[in-house]
Design a protein around this nucleic acid. Structure first.
Lengths: 288, 288
DNA sequence: TTACATCATCATTTTTTCTGATTAATATTT
DNA sequence: AAATATTAATCAGAAAAAATGATGATGTAA
């Protein structure tokens, strides 16, 4: 029925909009000026809107042209992204990645970013405790590990500091809970020690009500309002309520998210994934 | 350097991926089967990836083809959206719209949706109290009004019910505040009455500490931790903390968001904007 | 095996697009 | 004011790209 857009035409349109000259745009595009004129004309015919004001000598975007420019840009970006993701020198391969339960909450942002620009790279994700993740890394079973404890290993890179807070279900009340029922990870977690010590220090009685090796396990008890837990602020969900000094909860230490790589000269997909993690977490740094 | 994508080729690719037949795709596209073959081949050359498995008789997307399909689809959607937004029968004109401070918090979602599909429509937004908005509508100064109180007018359409909650700044404490300093709208707001009555009922002393005709005005006091306010849950920001029965706050009534139109046979852009409001708010309904 | 269906390939035709020259309009210089 | 220069639109012809219809190859069903 009606013709589709054409990326080449958008490219030309964009060049004219940038340079504000048909001649310069032609140079930039390596073609004759008349070609650019005709391309813009063709594009205008397709979308049925006049894009440039040519009454005077100067080339100026019309109001609609200005609006259309945003659409054209999105289209060109998507085009470039797609070509970069697939083209001949697109990344391909596999990345075996270990995350801890705690670092898991950052994965959605990281993954959507990475999957977008490197769709051909196969991702293998495991969830382990920090020390297990580092063992896997050393054993060559994984390429990267995003952990919360260095476990004595050297070479980890600090990619983010994250506040840890006490939290419980929105509706639940903490008043009548004494001793305080806790849903936290089992022994081995250094933050667990710090949290319990802090509670003891301020004289709050507690009991270890629920235990699990995974956050999902704990969440069941927390969501039911049966226990209080400790989470990084990034893992807070709408149904969780932060418990502060007002309610008698001591401040918690910050956790450090560390990135370990199997080798410094890792395969390109691995290195790219590592850089994506750094960038994504660094971006969040300011907002939290 | 390397050639750009081409929407026509994506269209063909998509047809083949859908029908799983080059011949059927050709019928669908109204062209010869050989053309489709060549188009797919050309596309494969551009992105440097084999898209279909043709070893057997059946046409099957390769693994990469399956991934590429998502990119192609996004591109085609953006193409269609752009054409619909500009093409000959694209909406053009102006919509004059009144919102109240309370309904304002829904505007970002509504506007981004509308602006996306109708970029050529000029939007004029005013923020008024409900009764002023309805007066403006009746006076023909605006085309649509999204209000929280019917003010005795008939013909409004209920587009959303929204819970109202007590809230204060995250860090601040409510314990030592007696009488409770309130930052709420001035007289005229029916929800204000309900809120104050509820406070009185549960024996909580309060004083009217801050007053303003706009939410921004109130927010200054609230953000500073100087006062407690009442907000619809959709207007909650991360720096606000909900105050519930635990802290001695009575439940509040729900507000009703009503949409009034100047006339039932409004201009097409106005009607489209109205429909966008309904759809956007209806979508939220389930999640809140 | 034969008949049939399906996709790739090819030579040819058709369509699209580009080029280079020219023109018209505006700005700049003399 | 006239001359010159710059710029974009237009046009005819050239070049390139794409579509067609025929043909061939390959696999499936009868």
């Amino acid at each position: 029925m009606r013709p589709d857009l054409n990326i080449d035409l958008l490219r030309s349109f964009n060049a004219v909009a940038e340079t504000r000259h048909f001649t310069r745009a032609a140079e930039q595009l390596n073609c004759a000026q008349s070609a650019v004129s005709m391309q813009v004309k063709r594009l205008e015919a397709i979308i049925g809107v006049r894009l440039f004001e040519r009454s005077k000598r100067i080339v100026k975007l019309t109001e609609e042209g200005e609006i259309f420019r945003r659409y054209a840009n999105r289209m060109l970006c998507l085009n470039d992204l797609t070509l970069a993701a697939f083209g001949r020198n697109a990344l391909q391969g596999r990345v075996r990645f270990s995350a801890t339960d705690t670092s898991m909450c950052f994965l959605p942002a990281i993954l959507s970013r990475f999957a977008q620009s490197c769709p051909l790279v196969e991702l293998e994700i495991r969830c382990e405790r920090s020390w297990e993740a580092l063992d896997s890394l050393q054993a060559g079973e994984t390429d990267l590990a995003l952990v919360t404890q260095p476990c004595g290993r050297k070479g980890g890179q600090l990619v983010k500091r994250e506040a840890l807070v006490w939290a419980m279900a929105q509706g639940a009340s903490v008043e009548e809970l004494d001793p305080l029922p806790l849903a936290i990870f089992g022994p081995g977690c250094i933050y667990r020690k710090a949290a319990l010590a802090a509670l003891d220090d301020c004289g709050r009685r507690w009991r270890h009500a629920y235990n699990s090796e995974s956050r999902d396990g704990l969440n069941v008890a927390v969501a039911a309002g049966l226990a209080v837990t400790v989470v990084p602020v990034s893992a807070l969900t709408p149904n969780l309520r932060v418990l502060g000094p007002d309610e008698g909860f001591p401040p918690l230490p910050e956790i450090e998210i560390l990135l370990f790589e199997a080798s410094s000269d890792a395969a390109l997909p691995v290195a790219t994934f590592a850089r994506t993690i750094e960038e994504t977490l660094a971006k969040d740094k300011g907002t939290v």
